[in-house]
Design a binder for these strands. Sequence first.
DNA 1: TGAGCCTAGATTGCACACAATTCGTCGCAG
DNA 2: CTGCGACGAATTGTGTGCAATCTAGGCTCA
Lengths: 228, 228
Amino acid sequence: MAEDGRSATEIAYKEIRGHLLDRRLPPGAPLREAELASLAGVSRTPVREALRRLDAEGLVELLPRRGARVAPWSEQELEDVFALRLRLEGLGARLAATRASAGEAERLRQLAEAVAIASRRRDARRFDEITRANNAFHAGVLAAAGDDWLRSSVGAVVSRALVRHTFERYRPVDLRRSLAHHHELADAIAAGDPDWAESVMSSHIFAARRVLLSHRAQADRTVAGANE
Amino acid sequence: MAEDGRSATEIAYKEIRGHLLDRRLPPGAPLREAELASLAGVSRTPVREALRRLDAEGLVELLPRRGARVAPWSEQELEDVFALRLRLEGLGARLAATRASAGEAERLRQLAEAVAIASRRRDARRFDEITRANNAFHAGVLAAAGDDWLRSSVGAVVSRALVRHTFERYRPVDLRRSLAHHHELADAIAAGDPDWAESVMSSHIFAARRVLLSHRAQADRTVAGANE
DNA sequence: TGAGCCTAGATTGCACACAATTCGTCGCAG
DNA sequence: CTGCGACGAATTGTGTGCAATCTAGGCTCA
């Protein structure tokens, strides 16, 4: 757990972020520097720098002189995140349709297909692979948009949303719809139609919002419920 | 230059940020930790933490093992920032119109008036005061929107845009239009009309974009030219 | 019995020292 | 004269120690 090519700060960042994203460190949990340091196998200094970065990304809350804790979530915030993604990724899709080269459009088609392929897996890594492919597709759209600022803004928002966004609870119909959106989006961008592209992306995010919010509501209703 | 109530990290952050915003540290300039440390009167440790934060905000670029430099700007990036602000602040205005209480709406009217008052100054601090009042107004709109995520996203984008956004080159007609937008926006929010509010905010940002981009173009055209 | 103070342990904030890496420069060979 | 390589100064990366501060628990006093 010691020697990597990566820097200690990056090791700490990745390690802590991983624990945040899969909820091994649940929202609201206190984060002590010494613990995280031994967890990542580095000293407190890189841990502190990683925490600063995670704070800037909104994944943790930094209270002066009182340490850090995993950023908590509210229903309202979750709604707000989707409203933000709607605007930002909508803009991204629009720009991509305007600026994408033929090669980039083709690449988006491949990335969309990659998500579909991942979704046909049936093994343990299925949802990890779907998530990875899905992220790659969305990153591809933003790359085609050619706006670094937009990309970093979306990255900041989505990295927070990622804590919630798991495909495990998608019903088959939801997943099929999501895949169809990807293909349609790739077509819209290839066609160079910004209105179409933005519209599809909006639908895509509205649909995701519905799935994740209803899942959350369901989970809240069945706190001590069945194992599902 | 030593004893403050503030923490060393905050001193370093504010100090460096100040130098960035008023261009004492110009875009592209290299930032050496030791220099910044003696500049702020603290050690390298808090300087490093401040640089991480400024990197996350996009004001500086952090190159691994090669130090930091003031984030450079391109014409394209400037365009992109306005496209982003259009979406984000447009959303903020919409939410504010939906969620703002009567008291908040009234407060926005006061903030709009404060900008107008600042613009009537004729002393040396005129533009500083306009900037401060203008920021307060926009912050007020976002506060009324009640979306912390949106606020932090806008904060990230605008803090970068601030490097460019000076009121000094606004013509009288531009400034009057800007003030009118503020009042109209306050009215739209007070009326609880989200479409109106977003529309006004969009106009406001389009207008600002035109002023700052044309100013830039003009400045480029008259590099060795007349005194304006 | 309860409220408030006070002490002790734990934790963060900061400075400093050293290790690792990079960049510039000088020398040498072709 | 030019290109390549190696050395050295400068700069960043990381670990560690100490001081400041916060939290928790018990103790005192009303």
